[in-house]
Design a binder for these strands. Structure first.
Lengths: 224, 224
DNA sequence: ATTATCTATAGATCTATAGATAATGC
DNA sequence: ATTATCTATAGATCTATAGATAATGC
């Protein structure tokens, strides 16, 4: 499935036919839903065309009518998911909604939200990471969607740059955000229950508290 | 291949026969080498029994003589790799070798080493992460090997606890180490060249510098 | 007329084993 | 006698298509 030399413009129009008619749109959606549910519940290897078709209540032939091939189906699922996530981020990060909130309050809200969403869509998130490993088109697509989510957060945080000490507050904010994100991402991805580290055994609350302390210290924000 | 309900003691004796004789040991090693090279160069999906056998210069039948099944072969590769890594860590972290080094100097050496090794064995590292996603036995094994590497580092760092400010230096050190590790891990895993974030575009040197500043600020170590 | 859908299956790929043969060690 | 190895192939699984039939929209 992974073909690194593929130069087609896969993210433009690789699916055979995105439906115009209402009735077909239902089935189109049903197939994406089925594929994503399999991804979430059982991981990437569980996504076979036959299982997607069955779960969506159509035949394999019908699925190949909608999607040029299996790769196009997977791409469509990833694309829909990341598009929706970016859309949610854009509306949640409207600066007007954060009037009066401090830098640290915004970071705290971000951490809580990231952990909540990461738990909710754990399987999909892991599957996306794996697809990114195997297919550079997916990697680029996910990276660009990730930027589409992080850019508005950075923009919002940068309006609080005067709270930050040091010579380069804008860059420091970017570094802090990536460090927090990496730490959360790792916490959500790993899951060896018995053998986990001291830090993994902290509750979410304490974990968030420590990460905020990391950010506060690095950014030189005064404690209240 | 992934069978979450598998309760056999796979890490004890799942391979059919680890050889006693010198000549067989060569072939045993050749097969692990072949599998690991495929893992490193082309990823997990490239590891088929036929390709491993061919690359090791034996037949498929011979491979099944050495390994009960494909899973046992993969496990043996992971096991050897993590064992060697833990062994290297133990000798590198002998406290006697770090006489006179400060906490921050040790952290810096750790970061440089982690980035170097991570680049060198990128494919293997990614494959291990993916195996951990798919197979909880591998996840537990990797987590325990990871602890085997991080424990000596923590022990070493803890001998410098008096350099650290705050009420709970031991815990702070553990948190700092995990945050740094997560940040490095993410930098090494991601690789969307054109679309990468501001932080990903920093040079290794500056990246290390920023992470050290994160740790220094959080741990309350005085700047020199 | 065109679009949507189904059943049935060809073709590719991979794991694992059967059965025969060669090499090794007491 | 036992261990190591090979060739050949059965059996499982999956993608994708061919060819026939049903539904839809001008």
């Amino acid at each position: 499935m992974a073909d690194p030399t593929n130069t087609r413009e896969i993210w433009q129009q690789r699916w055979a036919r995105e439906p115009q008619q209402a009735r077909s749109a239902l089935r189109w959606t049903a197939q994406l839903d089925a594929a994503q549910a399999l991804l979430e519940e059982e991981g990437l290897d569980a996504v076979t065309v036959a299982r997607v078709a069955k779960r969506a209540g159509v035949s394999v032939g019908a699925t190949y009518h909608y999607f040029q091939d299996k790769q196009a189906l997977i791409y469509a699922v990833v694309d829909r998911f990341t598009r929706e996530a970016a859309e949610r981020a854009r509306s949640a990060l409207d600066p007007a909604r954060w009037e009066g909130a401090s830098l640290m309050e915004i970071l705290e809200a971000y951490l809580r939200h990231a952990i909540k969403v990461g738990r909710r869509f754990r399987g999909t998130h892991l599957a996306h990471k794996r697809l990114a490993m195997e297919d550079r088109h997916v990697a680029e697509h996910l990276a660009s969607e990730h930027r589409a989510i992080h850019e508005p957060i950075l923009k919002l945080l940068e309006t609080r740059a005067e709270e930050v000490g040091g010579a380069e507050p804008i860059r420091s904010i970017a570094v802090a955000l990536e460090v927090l994100w990496a730490s959360v991402d790792q916490r959500l991805s790993n899951h060896a229950p018995g053998t986990s580290s001291r830090v993994a055994r902290l509750s979410d609350e304490r974990f968030i508290g420590e990460l905020l302390e990391v950010a506060r210290a690095y950014l030189g924000v005064e404690s209240k």
